[in-house]
């Protein structure tokens, strides 16, 4: 294959140097730190992030304009946060000229489509100042997460401190210190079906993309991709925001990222092929054709 990791200028393993950010971060605190730095240095006016919604562990897209709001959005919520839904509003009533946005690979795709084919997104494209993509294998509807946490893991949503998919397991960490792990096999049927046609694992279209896979616990793998991403990353490094290690030096390293990316793409390409002959002499629609 060879294209599974997308185009990138550099890749490192990194973690932010801000202890406060790191404390509640999912991994290396890359997204929160990047936006906090970009906000402080005027690169962005604000960022669309997955804030806290009306129910526990249900994200809601919010426009964060302060460090405190960014910090409140730390941590992965394994269900849908339609961040793109705010992409026009942020340039309207919020009046922003320099917009930051974080999102899954599909949301980065949506963003770039909106820039290349701006059909309902007038004057939005040029205002994207920093797009941070996060690795994503699949996502879940909110009810799926309730099912997994409350039924399979037998924990209350309110009592969960952190959720994580890693090392072949779905991990649920309770606030009182208890840990439940579910085999990923259990989670598969709860996945969002739309994820099964996705051909992007490491957010190929982000300015910068980041995720846990490939780096040790507490660290993140970071791809610097676009010209813009390169410039922001260089400034953040110069400002001492991150400590980094060369990707070749860390375990499990890029090899695992490549392997998982390949697995995802291969599996989903197969799904797409299956859709073409789904019926009798009829198939389902393929958005990539």
């Amino acid at each position: 294959m060879g294209t599974e990791l997308g185009n990138y200028k550099s890749v490192v393993s990194a973690r932010c140097t801000d202890k406060e950010i790191l404390k509640g971060a999912q991994d290396g605190g890359i997204v929160t730190q990047l936006f906090a730095f970009a906000l402080e240095s005027g690169i962005i006016d604000g960022a669309i992030v997955a804030g806290n919604g009306a129910e526990p562990w249900r994200p809601e897209p919010v426009v964060a304009t302060t460090r405190a709001e960014l910090l409140a959005a730390r941590g992965t919520k394994y269900n849908l946060s339609p961040n793109m839904s705010l992409i026009k509003e942020v340039t309207r009533s919020y009046g922003m000229d320099k917009v930051g946005i974080v999102g899954t690979p599909c949301q980065m795709q949506a963003l770039r489509k909106g820039q290349v084919y701006p059909i309902g997104l007038r004057d939005v494209g040029d205002k994207i100042a920093l797009a941070v993509g996060i690795f994503c294998m699949e996502n879940f509807p909110y009810q799926s997460i309730i099912q997994l946490v409350e039924d399979h893991a037998a924990m209350k949503m309110e009592s969960v401190k952190k959720m994580e998919i890693g090392k072949g397991k779905f991990w649920v960490y309770g606030k009182r210190g208890q840990v439940v792990q579910l085999p990923l096999k259990v989670t598969h049927k709860y996945e969002q079906p739309g994820c099964h046609v996705c051909l992007d694992y490491v957010a190929n279209l982000g300015d910068i993309s980041t995720g846990s896979v490939g780096s040790p616990d507490g660290w993140s793998t970071v791809f610097v991709r676009s010209r813009n991403g390169d410039s922001v990353w260089a400034k953040a490094i110069a400002a001492g925001c991150f400590e980094t290690q060369p990707m070749e030096k860390v375990k499990p390293g890029l090899e695992l990222v490549t392997k998982l990316a390949n697995e995802k793409i291969t599996k989903n390409k197969k799904t797409l092929e299956g859709r073409a002959t789904f019926g009798v002499g009829k198939g389902l629609r393929n958005p990539y054709l």
Partner: peptide
Amino acid sequence: GLCMGCGS
């Protein structure tokens, strides 16, 4: 079966 909830 294609929606992934991006919000575009």
